[in-house]
Design a protein around this nucleic acid. Sequence first.
DNA 1: GTCTATATCCAGATAGAC
DNA 2: GTCTATCTGGATATAGAC
Lengths: 195, 195
Amino acid sequence: MRDRRAERREATKAEILDAAWELVRAEGLATLSLRDLARKVGMQAPSLYSYFESKHAIYDAMFLQGNLELLRRYEALPEFDDPVDEFRSNARLFVGFTVEDPARAQLMFMRSIPGFEPSAETYGVAVRIVERGRERFKKLGVTKPEHFDLWTGIVSGLAFQQIANEPDTERWTRLADEAVDMFLGHINTKRGRAK
Amino acid sequence: MRDRRAERREATKAEILDAAWELVRAEGLATLSLRDLARKVGMQAPSLYSYFESKHAIYDAMFLQGNLELLRRYEALPEFDDPVDEFRSNARLFVGFTVEDPARAQLMFMRSIPGFEPSAETYGVAVRIVERGRERFKKLGVTKPEHFDLWTGIVSGLAFQQIANEPDTERWTRLADEAVDMFLGHINTKRGRAK
DNA sequence: GTCTATATCCAGATAGAC
DNA sequence: GTCTATCTGGATATAGAC
Protein backbone atom coordinates (compact mmCIF):
# COMPACT_ATOMS: atom_id res chain seq x y z
CA MET A 1 0.00 0.00 0.00
CA ARG A 2 1.17 3.46 -0.79
CA ASP A 3 2.47 5.50 2.06
CA ARG A 4 0.74 8.73 1.36
CA ARG A 5 2.42 10.46 4.26
CA ALA A 6 5.89 9.56 3.02
CA GLU A 7 4.93 10.70 -0.44
CA ARG A 8 3.75 14.02 0.86
CA ARG A 9 6.94 14.41 2.80
CA GLU A 10 9.10 13.70 -0.23
CA ALA A 11 7.07 16.16 -2.24
CA THR A 12 7.68 18.84 0.35
CA LYS A 13 11.38 18.10 0.40
CA ALA A 14 11.44 18.42 -3.35
CA GLU A 15 9.58 21.69 -3.10
CA ILE A 16 12.12 23.02 -0.63
CA LEU A 17 14.97 22.02 -2.90
CA ASP A 18 13.31 23.64 -5.89
CA ALA A 19 13.00 26.86 -3.93
CA ALA A 20 16.62 26.60 -2.85
CA TRP A 21 17.73 26.29 -6.46
CA GLU A 22 15.73 29.34 -7.38
CA LEU A 23 17.32 31.31 -4.59
CA VAL A 24 20.90 30.36 -5.34
CA ARG A 25 20.38 31.03 -9.02
CA ALA A 26 19.08 34.48 -8.22
CA GLU A 27 21.20 35.49 -5.24
CA GLY A 28 24.27 33.32 -5.39
CA LEU A 29 25.22 30.03 -3.86
CA ALA A 30 26.86 31.33 -0.71
CA THR A 31 24.03 33.73 0.06
CA LEU A 32 21.42 31.07 0.69
CA SER A 33 19.85 31.43 4.13
CA LEU A 34 17.32 29.25 5.86
CA ARG A 35 15.14 32.27 6.64
CA ASP A 36 14.78 33.19 2.99
CA LEU A 37 14.34 29.62 1.95
CA ALA A 38 11.61 29.02 4.51
CA ARG A 39 9.77 32.16 3.56
CA LYS A 40 9.86 31.15 -0.07
CA VAL A 41 8.01 27.93 0.68
CA GLY A 42 5.66 29.56 3.18
CA MET A 43 7.22 28.28 6.37
CA GLN A 44 9.15 29.57 9.30
CA ALA A 45 12.83 28.73 9.33
CA PRO A 46 12.73 26.09 12.10
CA SER A 47 10.19 24.05 10.17
CA LEU A 48 12.83 23.22 7.61
CA TYR A 49 14.50 21.07 10.23
CA SER A 50 11.62 18.63 9.94
CA TYR A 51 12.88 17.89 6.45
CA PHE A 52 16.61 18.47 6.56
CA GLU A 53 18.77 18.12 9.61
CA SER A 54 21.03 21.02 8.73
CA LYS A 55 21.83 23.57 6.09
CA HIS A 56 24.67 21.40 4.89
CA ALA A 57 22.19 18.57 4.39
CA ILE A 58 20.32 20.85 2.00
CA TYR A 59 23.50 21.60 0.08
CA ASP A 60 24.19 17.90 0.05
CA ALA A 61 20.79 17.11 -1.43
CA MET A 62 21.33 19.79 -4.06
CA PHE A 63 24.75 18.43 -4.85
CA LEU A 64 23.17 15.03 -5.33
CA GLN A 65 20.40 16.36 -7.55
CA GLY A 66 22.89 18.17 -9.72
CA ASN A 67 25.01 15.10 -10.18
CA LEU A 68 22.04 12.87 -10.89
CA GLU A 69 20.89 15.31 -13.53
CA LEU A 70 24.32 15.41 -15.14
CA LEU A 71 24.56 11.63 -15.11
CA ARG A 72 21.11 11.35 -16.62
CA ARG A 73 22.11 13.64 -19.46
CA TYR A 74 25.28 11.71 -20.19
CA GLU A 75 23.31 8.50 -20.28
CA ALA A 76 20.73 10.04 -22.56
CA LEU A 77 23.31 10.89 -25.21
CA PRO A 78 22.44 9.17 -28.47
CA GLU A 79 24.79 6.80 -30.25
CA PHE A 80 26.85 8.30 -33.02
CA ASP A 81 28.33 6.70 -36.11
CA ASP A 82 31.25 9.09 -36.01
CA PRO A 83 33.21 9.16 -32.74
CA VAL A 84 33.98 12.81 -33.37
CA ASP A 85 30.31 13.51 -32.91
CA GLU A 86 30.36 11.79 -29.57
CA PHE A 87 33.28 13.87 -28.37
CA ARG A 88 31.56 17.00 -29.53
CA SER A 89 28.24 16.25 -27.93
CA ASN A 90 30.06 15.28 -24.79
CA ALA A 91 31.86 18.61 -24.63
CA ARG A 92 28.75 20.57 -25.48
CA LEU A 93 26.82 18.74 -22.81
CA PHE A 94 29.21 19.66 -20.02
CA VAL A 95 29.69 23.23 -21.15
CA GLY A 96 25.96 23.72 -21.55
CA PHE A 97 25.24 22.18 -18.17
CA THR A 98 27.74 24.48 -16.50
CA VAL A 99 26.70 27.67 -18.20
CA GLU A 100 22.96 27.18 -17.86
CA ASP A 101 23.30 27.27 -14.08
CA PRO A 102 26.57 28.70 -12.78
CA ALA A 103 25.51 28.42 -9.14
CA ARG A 104 24.97 24.70 -9.58
CA ALA A 105 28.38 24.37 -11.22
CA GLN A 106 29.92 26.27 -8.34
CA LEU A 107 28.37 23.84 -5.90
CA MET A 108 29.32 20.76 -7.86
CA PHE A 109 32.73 21.56 -9.27
CA MET A 110 34.33 24.19 -7.07
CA ARG A 111 34.97 24.10 -3.37
CA SER A 112 33.45 27.39 -2.41
CA ILE A 113 31.19 26.75 0.58
CA PRO A 114 33.20 26.81 3.81
CA GLY A 115 32.92 23.55 5.66
CA PHE A 116 30.72 21.76 3.16
CA GLU A 117 31.78 18.30 2.07
CA PRO A 118 29.37 16.06 0.20
CA SER A 119 28.37 12.90 2.01
CA ALA A 120 29.95 9.65 0.87
CA GLU A 121 26.79 8.46 -0.83
CA THR A 122 26.35 11.72 -2.67
CA TYR A 123 29.96 11.93 -3.66
CA GLY A 124 29.67 8.46 -5.09
CA VAL A 125 27.45 9.71 -7.88
CA ALA A 126 30.02 12.31 -8.83
CA VAL A 127 32.65 9.59 -8.94
CA ARG A 128 30.44 7.42 -11.12
CA ILE A 129 30.10 10.22 -13.63
CA VAL A 130 33.85 10.50 -13.97
CA GLU A 131 34.29 6.74 -14.14
CA ARG A 132 31.68 6.51 -16.81
CA GLY A 133 33.42 9.17 -18.85
CA ARG A 134 36.75 7.48 -18.52
CA GLU A 135 35.37 4.14 -19.69
CA ARG A 136 33.54 5.69 -22.58
CA PHE A 137 36.73 7.40 -23.69
CA LYS A 138 38.63 4.14 -23.49
CA LYS A 139 36.18 2.55 -25.86
CA LEU A 140 36.69 5.44 -28.22
CA GLY A 141 40.43 4.88 -28.21
CA VAL A 142 41.49 7.41 -25.59
CA THR A 143 43.34 4.97 -23.41
CA LYS A 144 45.89 7.10 -21.59
CA PRO A 145 44.52 8.48 -18.33
CA GLU A 146 46.49 11.68 -18.90
CA HIS A 147 44.50 12.32 -22.02
CA PHE A 148 41.25 12.02 -20.17
CA ASP A 149 42.51 14.52 -17.59
CA LEU A 150 43.61 16.80 -20.39
CA TRP A 151 40.11 16.55 -21.79
CA THR A 152 38.40 17.46 -18.53
CA GLY A 153 40.82 20.34 -18.14
CA ILE A 154 40.02 21.75 -21.56
CA VAL A 155 36.27 21.37 -21.38
CA SER A 156 35.86 22.63 -17.84
CA GLY A 157 38.29 25.44 -18.60
CA LEU A 158 36.10 26.79 -21.38
CA ALA A 159 33.01 26.47 -19.22
CA PHE A 160 34.52 28.13 -16.16
CA GLN A 161 36.08 30.98 -18.09
CA GLN A 162 32.65 31.61 -19.52
CA ILE A 163 30.76 31.78 -16.26
CA ALA A 164 33.50 33.64 -14.41
CA ASN A 165 34.10 36.34 -16.99
CA GLU A 166 31.20 36.80 -19.36
CA PRO A 167 28.22 34.79 -18.16
CA ASP A 168 25.92 36.34 -20.73
CA THR A 169 27.92 35.78 -23.91
CA GLU A 170 29.20 32.68 -25.71
CA ARG A 171 32.78 33.82 -26.02
CA TRP A 172 34.27 30.58 -24.70
CA THR A 173 31.44 28.11 -25.07
CA ARG A 174 31.36 28.56 -28.83
CA LEU A 175 34.95 27.31 -28.93
CA ALA A 176 33.91 23.85 -27.73
CA ASP A 177 33.87 22.21 -31.15
CA GLU A 178 37.22 23.70 -32.09
CA ALA A 179 38.66 22.54 -28.79
CA VAL A 180 37.46 19.02 -29.53
CA ASP A 181 39.16 19.10 -32.93
CA MET A 182 42.31 20.34 -31.28
CA PHE A 183 42.20 17.58 -28.68
CA LEU A 184 41.52 14.83 -31.21
CA GLY A 185 44.17 16.16 -33.54
CA HIS A 186 46.62 15.98 -30.71
CA ILE A 187 45.95 12.45 -29.58
CA ASN A 188 45.78 11.18 -33.15
CA THR A 189 49.11 12.76 -33.93
CA LYS A 190 50.61 11.04 -30.96
CA ARG A 191 49.05 7.75 -31.97
CA GLY A 192 50.40 8.16 -35.50
CA ARG A 193 53.89 8.87 -34.28
CA ALA A 194 53.84 5.97 -31.87
CA LYS A 195 53.11 3.47 -34.61
CA MET B 1 61.16 65.37 3.23
CA ARG B 2 60.00 61.91 4.07
CA ASP B 3 56.63 61.57 5.62
CA ARG B 4 57.41 59.13 8.35
CA ARG B 5 53.83 59.02 9.48
CA ALA B 6 52.56 58.05 6.06
CA GLU B 7 55.28 55.45 5.77
CA ARG B 8 54.28 53.91 9.06
CA ARG B 9 50.71 53.86 7.97
CA GLU B 10 51.50 52.10 4.72
CA ALA B 11 53.60 49.58 6.59
CA THR B 12 50.71 48.81 8.88
CA LYS B 13 48.35 48.41 5.95
CA ALA B 14 50.79 46.01 4.38
CA GLU B 15 51.03 44.12 7.64
CA ILE B 16 47.26 43.79 7.79
CA LEU B 17 47.13 42.52 4.23
CA ASP B 18 49.89 39.99 4.91
CA ALA B 19 47.89 38.70 7.86
CA ALA B 20 44.76 38.56 5.72
CA TRP B 21 46.56 36.45 3.13
CA GLU B 22 47.74 34.08 5.81
CA LEU B 23 44.22 33.70 7.14
CA VAL B 24 42.56 33.07 3.80
CA ARG B 25 45.24 30.58 2.85
CA ALA B 26 44.66 28.70 6.08
CA GLU B 27 40.90 29.06 6.57
CA GLY B 28 39.51 29.82 3.17
CA LEU B 29 38.70 33.01 1.35
CA ALA B 30 35.09 33.35 2.40
CA THR B 31 35.84 32.67 6.06
CA LEU B 32 37.89 35.80 6.61
CA SER B 33 36.52 37.90 9.47
CA LEU B 34 37.65 41.28 10.72
CA ARG B 35 37.78 40.01 14.28
CA ASP B 36 40.24 37.26 13.42
CA LEU B 37 42.22 39.55 11.20
CA ALA B 38 42.49 42.21 13.88
CA ARG B 39 43.53 39.72 16.52
CA LYS B 40 46.21 38.40 14.22
CA VAL B 41 47.83 41.82 13.98
CA GLY B 42 47.27 42.60 17.65
CA MET B 43 44.40 45.02 17.31
CA GLN B 44 40.73 45.17 18.07
CA ALA B 45 38.43 44.86 15.11
CA PRO B 46 37.32 48.51 14.94
CA SER B 47 40.91 49.66 14.62
CA LEU B 48 41.08 48.14 11.17
CA TYR B 49 38.73 50.87 10.03
CA SER B 50 41.53 53.36 10.47
CA TYR B 51 43.25 51.61 7.57
CA PHE B 52 40.48 50.22 5.40
CA GLU B 53 37.03 51.65 5.14
CA SER B 54 35.32 48.28 4.84
CA LYS B 55 35.90 44.60 4.53
CA HIS B 56 35.38 44.84 0.81
CA ALA B 57 38.17 47.41 0.68
CA ILE B 58 40.46 44.79 2.15
CA TYR B 59 39.43 42.27 -0.47
CA ASP B 60 39.97 44.95 -3.07
CA ALA B 61 43.50 45.64 -1.88
CA MET B 62 44.21 41.92 -1.92
CA PHE B 63 42.80 41.61 -5.40
CA LEU B 64 45.11 44.41 -6.46
CA GLN B 65 48.15 42.85 -4.82
CA GLY B 66 47.46 39.54 -6.49
CA ASN B 67 47.16 41.11 -9.90
CA LEU B 68 50.25 43.25 -9.45
CA GLU B 69 52.19 40.16 -8.49
CA LEU B 70 50.95 38.25 -11.51
CA LEU B 71 51.75 41.14 -13.82
CA ARG B 72 55.21 41.42 -12.29
CA ARG B 73 55.87 37.76 -12.98
CA TYR B 74 54.74 38.01 -16.58
CA GLU B 75 56.99 40.98 -17.10
CA ALA B 76 59.89 39.18 -15.48
CA LEU B 77 59.73 36.32 -17.98
CA PRO B 78 63.00 36.05 -19.87
CA GLU B 79 63.25 36.26 -23.64
CA PHE B 80 63.35 32.97 -25.46
CA ASP B 81 64.89 32.07 -28.78
CA ASP B 82 62.22 29.47 -29.38
CA PRO B 83 58.64 30.75 -29.18
CA VAL B 84 57.58 27.34 -27.93
CA ASP B 85 59.56 28.03 -24.79
CA GLU B 86 57.70 31.25 -24.28
CA PHE B 87 54.33 29.54 -24.56
CA ARG B 88 55.47 26.89 -22.14
CA SER B 89 56.83 29.28 -19.56
CA ASN B 90 53.69 31.34 -19.92
CA ALA B 91 51.48 28.35 -19.19
CA ARG B 92 53.66 27.16 -16.33
CA LEU B 93 53.62 30.61 -14.83
CA PHE B 94 49.84 30.84 -14.68
CA VAL B 95 49.33 27.30 -13.51
CA GLY B 96 52.00 27.68 -10.84
CA PHE B 97 50.59 30.99 -9.69
CA THR B 98 47.13 29.49 -9.32
CA VAL B 99 48.16 26.31 -7.58
CA GLU B 100 50.58 27.88 -5.13
CA ASP B 101 47.74 29.88 -3.59
CA PRO B 102 44.26 28.62 -4.42
CA ALA B 103 42.56 31.18 -2.20
CA ARG B 104 44.22 33.98 -4.15
CA ALA B 105 43.12 32.40 -7.41
CA GLN B 106 39.59 32.13 -6.07
CA LEU B 107 39.61 35.82 -5.27
CA MET B 108 41.14 36.87 -8.58
CA PHE B 109 39.59 34.53 -11.10
CA MET B 110 36.30 33.31 -9.69
CA ARG B 111 33.36 35.31 -8.47
CA SER B 112 32.84 33.68 -5.15
CA ILE B 113 32.50 36.49 -2.60
CA PRO B 114 28.91 37.72 -2.46
CA GLY B 115 28.70 41.38 -3.28
CA PHE B 116 32.38 41.97 -3.91
CA GLU B 117 33.33 43.76 -7.11
CA PRO B 118 36.84 45.08 -7.60
CA SER B 119 37.12 48.85 -7.87
CA ALA B 120 37.69 50.31 -11.31
CA GLU B 121 41.31 51.12 -10.60
CA THR B 122 42.00 47.64 -9.28
CA TYR B 123 40.18 45.96 -12.10
CA GLY B 124 42.28 47.93 -14.54
CA VAL B 125 45.36 45.96 -13.57
CA ALA B 126 43.59 42.72 -14.29
CA VAL B 127 42.59 44.06 -17.67
CA ARG B 128 46.15 45.12 -18.39
CA ILE B 129 47.36 41.59 -17.73
CA VAL B 130 44.99 40.18 -20.28
CA GLU B 131 45.81 42.89 -22.81
CA ARG B 132 49.48 42.26 -22.36
CA GLY B 133 48.99 38.56 -22.97
CA ARG B 134 46.94 39.17 -26.06
CA GLU B 135 49.55 41.49 -27.54
CA ARG B 136 52.37 39.12 -26.73
CA PHE B 137 50.51 36.32 -28.45
CA LYS B 138 49.94 38.45 -31.50
CA LYS B 139 53.67 39.01 -31.83
CA LEU B 140 54.16 35.28 -31.61
CA GLY B 141 51.76 34.74 -34.47
CA VAL B 142 48.59 33.96 -32.58
CA THR B 143 46.48 36.61 -34.24
CA LYS B 144 42.94 35.30 -33.95
CA PRO B 145 41.28 36.42 -30.74
CA GLU B 146 39.48 33.08 -30.53
CA HIS B 147 42.81 31.35 -30.22
CA PHE B 148 43.82 33.51 -27.32
CA ASP B 149 40.53 32.69 -25.60
CA LEU B 150 41.10 29.03 -26.34
CA TRP B 151 44.50 29.36 -24.71
CA THR B 152 43.17 30.95 -21.53
CA GLY B 153 40.50 28.28 -21.39
CA ILE B 154 43.02 25.47 -21.60
CA VAL B 155 45.54 26.86 -19.16
CA SER B 156 43.06 28.00 -16.54
CA GLY B 157 41.19 24.72 -16.98
CA LEU B 158 44.20 22.68 -15.97
CA ALA B 159 44.90 24.98 -13.05
CA PHE B 160 41.34 25.02 -11.76
CA GLN B 161 40.83 21.29 -12.08
CA GLN B 162 43.98 20.90 -10.02
CA ILE B 163 42.98 23.13 -7.14
CA ALA B 164 39.35 22.00 -7.11
CA ASN B 165 39.99 18.27 -7.17
CA GLU B 166 43.47 17.35 -6.01
CA PRO B 167 45.20 20.39 -4.55
CA ASP B 168 48.10 18.32 -3.28
CA THR B 169 49.07 16.44 -6.43
CA GLU B 170 50.27 17.48 -9.87
CA ARG B 171 47.74 15.46 -11.82
CA TRP B 172 46.70 18.34 -14.07
CA THR B 173 49.54 20.80 -13.70
CA ARG B 174 52.03 18.34 -15.11
CA LEU B 175 50.01 18.31 -18.33
CA ALA B 176 50.82 21.95 -19.03
CA ASP B 177 53.63 21.30 -21.50
CA GLU B 178 51.61 18.73 -23.38
CA ALA B 179 48.69 21.13 -23.52
CA VAL B 180 50.95 23.75 -25.03
CA ASP B 181 52.08 21.31 -27.70
CA MET B 182 48.48 20.45 -28.40
CA PHE B 183 47.53 24.10 -28.71
CA LEU B 184 50.45 24.98 -30.96
CA GLY B 185 49.89 21.93 -33.10
CA HIS B 186 46.33 23.01 -33.57
CA ILE B 187 46.96 26.59 -34.60
CA ASN B 188 49.85 25.59 -36.84
CA THR B 189 47.70 23.03 -38.59
CA LYS B 190 45.10 25.66 -39.23
CA ARG B 191 47.73 28.07 -40.47
CA GLY B 192 49.12 25.39 -42.77
CA ARG B 193 45.72 24.64 -44.24
CA ALA B 194 44.93 28.27 -44.73
CA LYS B 195 47.97 28.86 -46.89
C1' DG C 1 4.54 19.10 11.36
C1' DT C 2 4.41 23.77 12.29
C1' DC C 3 4.58 27.35 15.08
C1' DT C 4 6.59 31.03 18.55
C1' DA C 5 10.16 32.06 21.28
C1' DT C 6 14.65 31.86 22.17
C1' DA C 7 19.47 30.39 22.58
C1' DT C 8 23.80 31.14 20.83
C1' DC C 9 26.89 33.03 18.19
C1' DC C 10 28.84 35.65 14.82
C1' DA C 11 29.28 39.20 11.57
C1' DG C 12 30.32 44.26 9.92
C1' DA C 13 30.21 48.71 11.36
C1' DT C 14 29.84 53.07 14.42
C1' DA C 15 30.24 56.32 18.66
C1' DG C 16 32.90 58.39 21.60
C1' DA C 17 36.44 58.35 25.44
C1' DC C 18 41.33 58.57 25.89
C1' DG D 1 45.14 55.74 16.27
C1' DT D 2 43.35 52.63 19.41
C1' DC D 3 40.40 51.32 22.63
C1' DT D 4 35.71 49.78 24.94
C1' DA D 5 31.13 49.53 24.36
C1' DT D 6 27.52 49.04 21.54
C1' DC D 7 24.43 48.97 17.52
C1' DT D 8 22.26 46.34 14.18
C1' DG D 9 21.44 42.62 11.92
C1' DG D 10 22.27 38.27 10.35
C1' DA D 11 22.93 33.40 10.81
C1' DT D 12 22.01 28.22 12.40
C1' DA D 13 19.85 25.66 15.50
C1' DT D 14 16.88 24.03 19.59
C1' DA D 15 12.83 23.81 23.06
C1' DG D 16 8.43 23.18 23.72
C1' DA D 17 3.43 24.46 23.01
C1' DC D 18 -0.29 23.32 19.92
